[in-house]
Nucleic acid binder design. Structure first.
Lengths: 277, 277
DNA sequence: TTGACAAATGACCAATCAGTCATTAGTATA
DNA sequence: TATACTAATGACTGATTGGTCATTTGTCAA
């Protein structure tokens, strides 16, 4: 395990228990069994650590849910499977989930806030896609409201799990929430968040930030991975991101190459999003 | 305005903007235009201040909502009026609302956490009462689930208002959420939170803490208020709290005396809750 | 004008914070 | 073994924290 990973895992626990502000770098290094100087070899600052944590886990969370939703052929259980995947992810990384919920509305760090908002919009996009696929025209006027209902459900019950140690029957909970969501999708008529209102406070996803983040991640993966197919796919896609030169079919195929490699699933998702494949 | 109030108002703004942990006592006293020493004449510690804030505003919030729900004769609009009252309260005290949402899951201070949980249970009780009144037997098996749906709705949309400056049409939003809640109440069948599960993680309201808090508040009000009827009502009720000696009708009547006085509405609510009137 | 009391001050304290950097330990090559 | 390199250390810094307390200021009645 790299030192960076060690620090991230050690800090997870402490942040979840005490909160980010209340945890000192000293505590983290003591808990990780390293010196204070070693911390600053891996992270430029304490802020960079929390941003790294959010990035790492949220990307996994989002790309995982997206995968479940996109690859689920049976529309009948889709809602239930969506909730299941989301709750399982939070259960698996419960320390991170606690941090995420606690730090969600903290305004201390501007970059962190932007990050949070960014992932929130990706989450919205997945929910929106799911609702449109399931109900199409039926939810044309209510879909943005429904996004917030789904997120409201997810938040309240996550809170219950994370902070009250409620016994978890995720399957049952997911079925229950799926039923409720379906009810609202089929019968709710009075809307609050219109299409227009939604877009006034959700400016489109920041392309530039995405691009830089992508290129940085590609370079990192190129160093880590040796598989020649993966490497070539990365090199071609990197060129394509910098200046588009591949046909959509080829680009799509290259991202699918990456999807087969366990450590590249998430970057594959990001590339597909960025290239609109 | 008392020095205590001045400090509370000054700190509200700073806590809302920066969070509790990230705000220093120095900042508060500078913002309030007083010395550091003066702060500690009004509050024993920084922790006591945040607890005071939570107590002050949550009591107002809860007793206000309770009043709206209890005194609303027309069941048809009850749900909508409930949401309206709740959102208006958060809008009126938006700085406090921000603090409340931010600090809701912070585990730093044990007493604060207990307080939060306590008020959360009072909120549950109001929602539960409302649902039972509106739907009775219909929601016998789903009511505890519905509480969490209502709270989920309230949380997500509050978050939107408070942190994204979304234009607020509370009437429309309340109508929309009332429709959704009614849909769930009438048609949802699959439950997750059963009666039994709910009571395993919500041990009954702490009676002793309530009693001490009540007596302390009565003594404080006795010093502040001169109206002889109010004073006598307080003295009789205080005796009754220490050792029950009044008939329910008399006790109830005495609390109603208090309800007519603007500054005693909240303590009147607490007394009715405690004495089960 | 005096003296007694309460209200208010801000210099001060020990503790802790994020972050730095001269120094040391460990390792690989020659 | 000697050299060259990186990885890791932890004492240190200057700033800031929550909280205290000897001192000053303000306000009374006598």
């Amino acid at each position: 395990m790299s030192k960076k990973q060690l620090i991230m895992e050690s800090s997870l626990e402490l942040f979840a228990k005490q909160g980010f502000e209340a945890t000192s770098v000293q505590q983290i290094t003591e808990h990780a069994g390293i010196s204070k100087g070693a911390f600053y070899l891996s992270f430029k600052s304490k802020d960079e650590l929390i941003i790294g944590l959010i990035d790492h886990f949220m990307l996994e969370f989002i790309s995982n849910i997206d995968h479940v939703v996109k690859n689920h052929s049976n529309n009948k259980n889709l809602l239930s499977e969506f909730y299941k995947a989301a709750f399982h992810s939070f259960q698996k990384h419960s320390d991170f989930a606690k941090i995420f919920i606690k730090e969600q509305s903290q305004t201390v760090n501007e970059e962190l806030l932007t990050k949070m908002h960014h992932y929130d919009k990706l989450f919205d996009k997945i929910i929106l896609g799911m609702l449109e696929r399931l109900y199409g025209e039926e939810v044309r006027h209510t879909k943005y409201d429904l996004i917030y209902c789904v997120k409201g459900f997810f938040h309240t019950y996550s809170h219950l799990f994370l902070f009250f140690n409620v016994p978890q029957d995720i399957t049952r909970l997911s079925r229950s929430l799926a039923e409720k969501t379906a009810l609202l999708a089929k019968h709710a008529e009075t809307t609050f968040i219109t299409d227009e209102l939604y877009h006034t406070f959700n400016e489109p996803v920041n392309e530039i930030q995405n691009k830089e983040q992508l290129l940085e991640m590609i370079d990192q993966k190129l160093e880590e991975i040796n598989d020649p197919t993966i490497k070539e796919s990365f090199i071609l896609l990197k060129q394509h991101v910098i200046e588009p030169n591949l046909s959509p079919a080829i680009a799509k195929g290259l991202t699918l190459n990456l999807k087969n490699h366990a450590e590249c699933k998430q970057i594959s998702y990001l590339l597909q999003q960025y290239l609109e494949l």
